[in-house]
C-alpha cells in the first residue's frame, strides 16, 4: 500500500498531465465547457426535489434541495470515479501496450479528473448555501478527510474492477447498473437520519433492527454522505458510529483489491 502513495508522488506530474488531458479532451469543443460537469447533480437535485414534494421525506430543518445536493456531490464523485476507473485500463490500450509506468496511474487519474469536477460542485454548493443563508462552521474542516476516504472507497472498486475488466469486459457493463442500484441503498434521496430513526429509535424490524442498521452502514457511502452533510450544512462532527462499519470494510478490501491489481498488471499488455 505504501507503494501506491509512493507512486502517487513519483508520478504526480504524469497523473496531473493525464487528468488535464481528460478534462481538456472532454470539454474542448463544448461551448458550456466544464459547466457540463455540474449539470448532472443539479438536474438530479431538481428531480429529487420535485419527487420529494409528492412523497414527503422528513429532512429536519435543512432545506431539501441543498441536503440532496450535498448528498449527490460525494455520491456522483464516488460513482463516476469508480466507473471511469474501471474503464481506465481498457481505454488506454495504446499506452499500456507501448510504455511502462505503474498501471495504477490510470485509475488514480480517473479519480483526479473527477476531483476537478467535484471542485466545481463546491461552487454550486456555495451558491446554494448563500441562497439559503447557511454558514459553514469549523466542522467543515472534516470535508477534505471525508473526500479522501471517498477516494479510498472508489479505489477499492476501481483497482479490482479495472483489472478484472481487462479479462472480462462484463465488469464495465455491469458496474453502472450496480452503482445506480447502490444509489438507492445510500442516503442520497433520503437522509441517513431517516433510516436511523426507523431502525434504531422505532426498532421497525424488530430484533433485527440494530443488525440491519449496521449492515446498511457497511456501505461506506452511507457514512460518507451523512458526514458530508453534517459537517458542511449542520455544523456537526461526523457520526463515527455510521462511518465505522464501512471503514472496516474498506480497510480490509482495499489491500486485497490492490494486490489483485498488481498481480494482474503483469499480463495487461498480453491480454488487453
Amino acid at each position: 500500500m505504501t507503494s501506491v502513495v509512493h507512486n502517487l508522488i513519483n508520478y504526480r506530474e504524469l497523473i496531473a498531465a493525464l487528468a488535464k488531458k481528460n478534462i481538456v479532451v472532454r470539454y474542448k469543443q463544448a461551448y458550456l465547457g466544464l459547466l457540463w460537469a455540474v449539470i448532472k447533480p443539479v438536474m438530479l437535485m431538481l428531480i429529487f426535489t420535485l419527487v420529494k414534494s409528492f412523497v414527503g421525506i422528513e429532512t429536519g430543518d435543512i432545506p431539501y434541495p441543498i441536503l440532496t445536493f450535498a448528498a449527490l456531490m460525494p455520491w456522483i464523485f464516488f460513482q463516476e470515479s469508480a466507473a471511469e476507473g474501471v474503464n481506465s485500463i481498457t481505454s488506454n490500450t495504446a499506452l499500456i501496450k507501448k510504455i511502462y509506468f505503474p498501471r495504477e496511474v490510470f485509475p488514480l487519474t480517473a479519480m483526479v479528473t473527477k476531483l476537478v469536477e467535484l471542485a466545481i460542485g463546491f461552487l454550486i454548493l456555495a451558491a446554494l448555501m448563500i441562497y439559503y443563508q447557511m454558514l459553514p462552521t469549523l466542522q467543515a474542516l472534516w470535508v477534505p478527510l471525508i473526500i479522501f476516504y471517498t477516494m479510498l472507497v472508489a479505489l477499492t472498486i476501481s483497482l479490482f474492477g479495472s483489472a478484472l475488466n481487462v479479462y472480462y469486459r462484463d465488469v464495465a457493463q455491469a458496474l453502472p447498473v450496480l452503482l445506480s442500484l447502490a444509489m438507492y441503498a445510500s442516503p442520497v434521496i433520503y437522509p441517513l437520519s431517516l433510516v436511523k430513526t426507523k431502525l434504531i429509535d422505532e426498532q421497525a424490524a424488530g430484533e433485527w433492527s440494530n443488525i440491519l442498521y449496521t449492515i446498511y452502514n457497511i456501505n461506506p457511502l452511507a457514512g460518507i454522505i451523512d458526514s458530508f452533510q453534517k459537517c458542511l450544512l449542520q455544523g456537526l462532527a461526523p457520526d463515527f458510529g455510521s462511518l465505522l462499519p464501512g471503514f472496516i470494510a474498506t480497510i480490509v478490501l482495499l489491500p486485497l483489491s490492490y494486490l489483485y491489481f498488481k498481480k494482474a498488471e503483469n499480463w495487461f499488455a498480453d491480454i488487453i
Binding site: 488535464k20 488531458k21 479532451v25 474542448k28 509506468f101
Partner: peptide, 14 residues
C-alpha cells in the same frame, strides 16, 4: 484532440 504543444507536454509526462 490536443494541440501539438499540449501533446508535447502530455507525452513528455508519459
Amino acid at each position: 484532440e490536443l494541440t501539438g504543444r499540449e501533446n508535447i507536454f502530455l507525452n513528455g509526462a508519459i
